[in-house]
Write a protein that binds this DNA or RNA. Structure first.
Lengths: 234, 234
DNA sequence: GCTTGTGAAATTGTTCACAGCC
DNA sequence: GGCTGTGAACAATTTCACAAGC
């Protein structure tokens, strides 16, 4: 017997990565008191094109009404449920330097679904200090902290040189979702989700494009210049 | 006459996004005193597979030696040149709150190629304050600051509600490369490169996957559960 | 009449596997 | 013998364009 129907579940990664964007756009619309929105309008608000938006939403289900559009609050709820924001996730931040400090106080966290549950630092000087309403705990207590607060998601905000060791310990403690802010390549075993946020990577990507906006020719290698000359018809 | 040869230039976006990663891996190897590296080793260090690495590098040119590998320093230099890090880019940070502060002091910036040239904030209280060795200037001077320091890349680290207005002003001043840290959807006209770094987006993506690791069935919609039941053979 | 939801086409990105070269 | 560079196969993603449904 052949596969009778396509297996359900299976939202493409690219779509998953855009759901938070849609959620934010919907929140903005809800705040403006908009009750219903078309895919064109929502796409415009989220900064994507409407075909993509409709395709993305179609992976979640059939939540719109033809000829009308989407009900803002309803769609907001469906996406939240899909992402898993109907529960709330206790988040641990490791490394309470400048960046960890900023993250602890960051508004972006406030988005429902996440709660900074604990802060940890390796520096005994910082231990006990209060940041964003939480007492900073020492790294030695990592094990306890993870258990005590039932941490599922951890954020690494340590200096680059410490990132791999911290990551290894987190993985050993059973954490499988890690967000790395340290400017370092960090390896994780199969089954652990690691995402990275990296200022210098982003700047480099911008620089690449910026460089090409002006004197594009300057950036050609000698080899490529020869190719170009040929193609242009030398 | 038909197109005689493929037009050169044109490194795929996906490749561009990985060049900074390779550069970082190469830097790590150089620091360890490694002089030559194979695509397998470099790929391992960078956390990608070696076929992808070789394909990526092949878009830049033929910088390896068959049977041997790549010369670390040479490749480092080629990638730097490709990205445009042989010049250095004066960067402006707008919004010197917690996050802007952290970014100003961030080690990731130190990577050659970027220099924080100016800081700007809308709060007159902060104007004149010294952060990371620079005097914070007032937003009203944005025009002057951009000209004075020849800013090409700007970082938005303001609260969400101010992000769009700041972005519009930056665009008006001719800036075409913007990195947005504010948790808000920001629109830019054609021709402007906007990249976003967003904590809550990243957390949401992790949460999506985390949710599916345990009680995956819990996440099915009623509709999908019916589909699944059918597929399984009800 | 208007807008969603979706097959099919087009494009982009990844992996394979091996010829070419040291 | 070993490793790069790359066509060709494959997979994922985006876009098109229109049938289906309110």
């Amino acid at each position: 017997m052949a596969q009778p129907a396509p297996i359900p579940r299976g939202v493409p990664e690219a779509t998953v990565a855009r759901l938070p964007l849609y959620l934010r756009a919907l929140t903005a619309l809800a705040e403006r008191g908009v009750a219903t929105v078309s895919s064109d309008e929502l796409a415009e608000t989220a900064g994507v094109n409407s075909a993509k938006l409709r395709k993305d939403l179609s992976y979640l289900g059939s939540y719109g009404t033809r000829g009308v559009g989407y009900e803002v609050e309803f769609l907001q709820h469906q996406i939240s449920r899909e992402i898993g924001l109907t529960q709330d996730w206790p988040v641990l931040i490791v490394g309470i330097g400048n960046l960890g400090h900023a993250l602890s106080n960051y508004g972006g966290f406030a988005s429902r679904g996440f709660r900074i549950a604990a802060l940890v630092d390796a520096d005994p000087q910082r231990t006990g200090e209060e940041v964003a309403g939480l007492k900073v705990r020492h790294s030695d207590d990592l094990d306890d902290v993870v258990k005590e607060f039932n941490i599922a998601i951890a954020v690494i905000a340590t200096p680059a040189h410490a990132a791999q060791a911290v990551c290894d310990r987190l993985v050993d403690l059973g954490i499988t979702s890690i967000l790395n802010f340290a400017p370092a390549v960090v390896q994780v075993p199969e089954g652990v989700d690691l995402r990275k946020v990296d200022l210098s990577t982003e700047l480099q990507i911008l620089a690449y494009h910026e460089q090409r906006k002006n004197g594009a020719a300057l950036a050609l290698t000698a080899e490529q210049a020869v190719e170009l000359a040929k193609a242009v018809g030398g």
